[in-house]
Design a protein around this nucleic acid. Structure first.
Lengths: 144, 144
DNA sequence: TTGAAAATATTGAATATTCAAGAATTGAAG
DNA sequence: CTTCAATTCTTGAATATTCAATATTTTCAA
């Protein structure tokens, strides 16, 4: 049974927040070389399959609230990294696509992100990393 | 070696963000019964040892930037959950203390948080939970 | 001892996020 | 068919967060 007087550092929610903050900070630092926030990298990465993705779908995938995504996409459209197309099958929807410029940037960002993953692999270990990923996936699954 | 064309869902940074978002959302939902944001629960919990904690120390412990913490503490002082005392040994510092009202609230919040931990234990399992905690701690350690 | 650098916390302006409401389109029941 | 509810996205106002600058105190070297 969980104890209500346990220090906060023993709560799963806290450990997740702490780890996330730290890893995210590191990633942020790398991506800042291209002046791109982590969320924009996620967006480019999801769109880099070349398909059109609706805003709702994207919001889920990149872990952003709907209005926040809208405004971030506005900026990215200004920067010509992505563009909007109205969905011909359902005109309530907007389909987002990545531009050529977006693709070029995404490649650079991917390699910065991979740098980080490898840095983690080195200091944290192959085994731990894949085990942690497995456990996180299963936690996420069990939360739906 | 990490692959740069791997889907975003395979990146550790993404899995952490996703899991954190989900677990945090659940916790938020419970704490909303007392209309308290997760960060305020963390603050109360850290202060509930009864000692005075400086703002810098607190900011680290509760995973908030310094100015964000200052403003959140302002609100909590208005709500008489905590109070400030100038550190007599180093007058640059401010020591934060929890009030009696804060303690009462903290108890209620703790039990809401424990509810969640137990819910996770049920659906995710004892073994996985403690293994995940262990791995997260060690990831955090290895990142310093 | 003095004066410059470092540490600590807060403030204000600039940005970003969120909540609630709105506009447009679709679905579906009567 | 028509109308009303549901879906999708955006907008605007209210909040919250962040960055850079400031004020205060301490540290420490000259």
């Amino acid at each position: 049974m969980a104890k209500s007087n346990a220090p906060i550092t023993e709560h799963l929610a806290y450990l997740l927040a702490q780890a996330n903050r730290e890893i995210n900070r590191q990633l942020e630092l790398r991506l800042s070389k291209e002046r791109v926030p982590v969320e924009q990298w996620r967006i480019l990465k999801v769109l880099s399959d070349g398909d059109g993705h609706s805003m709702g779908e994207l919001a889920d995938a990149v872990l952003l609230n709907h209005p926040t995504l809208t405004k971030m996409i506005d900026r990215m459209v200004s920067d010509t990294l992505v563009y909007r197309v109205q969905d011909p099958n359902d005109r309530r929807k907007v389909l987002m696509f990545i531009s050529d410029r977006g693709k070029v940037l995404c490649k650079k960002l991917n390699s910065l992100a991979v740098d980080q993953e490898e840095h983690i692999l080195e200091s944290y270990g192959d085994k731990s990393t894949s085990e942690l990923k497995r456990l996180l996936e299963s936690l996420i699954d069990s939360s739906n």
